[in-house]
Design a protein around this nucleic acid. Structure first.
Lengths: 343, 343
DNA sequence: CTGAAAGCGCTAACAG
DNA sequence: CTGTTAGCGCTTTCAG
């Protein structure tokens, strides 16, 4: 089945290619019966424009790339959804690039792989350094997500991690918790996310005049719930005492809930738990998870707005946007349920 | 910054375009120092091939579309990950199309939107009927996922839903359950998934010589955990007695666990719960969820293999592949924990 | 083994 | 308001 081309339609309708093109694009100045005639030819032949050819001619692809570490991490899948919705609203389609936190894959995102394929990319790097981004990112407009890099040639959208973590601590303190742990620091984690959240955690303790105890900062060997469960289990087994727990993300919190349950520690009675990202995972956990909730919809629309400005010709320095967040209160760290033995 | 083209490299290196192309494509018959010279010009000018132009010339896009109802449904996000991984392994990139179960969006997948954009599409329809798929799907190779349609012009990959549901029932029966409910039938659900699972559920009961009780088939108004929680809450409140529950998917099971917990019903002691899809949501639920586990990796690789055959020229009738599944046993319906009052 | 030239299908000047 | 034509950047016969 040979594809029918614009020229075929033109011939069938007995007009020029330009006229057909005008009809296809709904250009104003076409006489009604000309339009009718052409439209009929289009329908009869089943003509559909070849997007690739259109692209070559216009230089616009109408696509953006979304490069994230893992498609199936709840935070990223939820964010992807909003980005896909927003993109389709403004006429873009999205191609998803899964980097799996692989440095080579991240480099490829900015490097050769997107050449002429997309008009711009929204990129959540995990391993890449700022200088590297600046060096590699040349011809394609980029908006960065997350906390790891601050490039001068790309825009950047994030929430205020330090403040959000502080608020988490504040909430726990307000509920009477004093021995608040942080989960978890991952060895070799190049993202600034953990750093900033840890900083906010410490700041929150300082605000509450609670002395820092380095023993309350738990390390995890990777980003899986399995490992976070192991870290919490070990901590409990080693006799560590804590009545509050701030987690780096909902996956960690999920693993923590699991380990605490196994250890017979009751949440929130014995330990109140705060997650991060406000994902479906935490929404339906048992107990349901209090969690720092970035406004994902706003994140998506802001990122897309910045990207579109760059696509439309803005070439200025990188702009930074902070989008809002909230602390979603649920059962794992509720309001009005102080610990059993308040201090 | 003007893009550097193949012709620029050719001129700089003092050779023809063909030679540059040969080097770019690593064609065998190029003398070593020719290759060196050209490569140097490429590096100096920072040449990167324009993929769009290449496509126009070759007619191959190197991309496939993955059209699914929701990116952030755990089952689809996990499946997407495997498809993305498999695709990248065989040299394809994937563009994700979120239909949101919208009939128009589903039609668009097969219709104009993919024109010349992708070499093929993997499509999980929810609202589209078989005839419609056959009618619309013309020039693009398609592999269908899910249970709703059986097209003659497209391939199809699924698990054996009937058998899987039967096995779920069998497991519950083996643990002493006799009043087994099914959650849930969704009004207006055009997918065959629910039908097949319901059929398997009924078959399983018949196998165990347990009379069918229509009152045990619960209806849900949409596919969210909120609604499934409501359905279960209502059922319990209305005095419905059951000691086992097979859920149409993990999201429903998640909502069910929530509602049962609120109602003071203990899982698995009072009611053993089986989910479907084996997603992260269920893996970390409390209690963790026993779930029908489609082999998502096999599903992804099978779908991609079939699609590639079509892309490579196979034009035969639609083939149907059943991929394997298992019942992953976890806390919500464990082995060796019969109900309190066995019959 | 390398070079020249003809498309791939569409768009956008530029005429008419 | 409609038609002609020259590209977009790459691939790929087909000669040399």
């Amino acid at each position: 089945m040979k594809r029918v081309r614009l020229a075929d339609v033109a011939e069938a309708a007995g007009v020029s290619m330009k006229t057909v093109s005008n009809v296809v694009h709904d250009y104003p100045h076409v006489t009604p019966d000309m339009r009718r005639k052409v439209q009929q030819a289009i329908d009869e032949l089943g003509y559909k424009p070849n997007l690739t050819a259109r692209r070559l001619a216009t230089g616009k692809t109408g696509m953006i790339a979304l490069a994230i570490p893992e498609i199936d991490h709840p935070y990223f899948s939820e964010l992807s959804r909003y980005i896909a919705e927003e993109a389709s609203r403004v006429g873009y389609r999205v191609i998803v690039e899964q980097t799996l936190s692989n440095p080579a894959a991240e480099r490829a995102v900015l490097n050769d792989r997107e050449t002429g394929l997309v008009d711009g990319v929204i990129f959540h790097p995990v391993r890449m350094q700022s200088m590297e981004v600046a060096r590699l990112q040349r011809d394609v407009p980029v908006v960065l997500l997350g906390e790891s890099v601050m490039a001068v040639t790309a825009d950047h959208v994030m929430i205020d991690n330090v403040v959000a973590a502080q608020e988490g601590v504040q909430h726990l303190v307000g509920e009477g918790r004093r021995r608040i742990a942080f989960l978890g620091v991952v060895a070799g984690d190049a993202t600034g996310s953990t750093d900033q959240r840890l900083l906010g955690y410490q700041q929150g303790l300082v605000d509450a005049k609670i002395p820092l105890d380095p023993g309350l900062v738990l390390s995890v060997s990777d980003f899986t719930p399995e490992e976070s469960a192991r870290a919490v289990r070990d901590a409990v087994a080693s006799g560590l005492v804590f009545d509050g727990l701030i987690c780096r993300d909902d996956r960690f919190a999920t693993g923590a809930l699991f380990a605490l349950r196994q250890a017979g520690v009751q949440v929130p009675r014995d330990v109140a738990v705060v997650g991060w990202d406000d994902t479906e995972l935490g929404r339906w956990a048992s107990p349901s998870l209090t969690s720092v909730a970035p406004d994902k919809r706003e994140l998506a629309s802001t990122a897309l707005a910045l990207l579109r400005e760059r696509i439309d010709g803005y070439h200025g320095v990188g702009r930074h946007r902070i989008v809002s967040h909230a602390l979603t209160i649920r059962e794992s760290a509720p309001l009005g349920a102080p610990a059993l033995q308040p201090h």
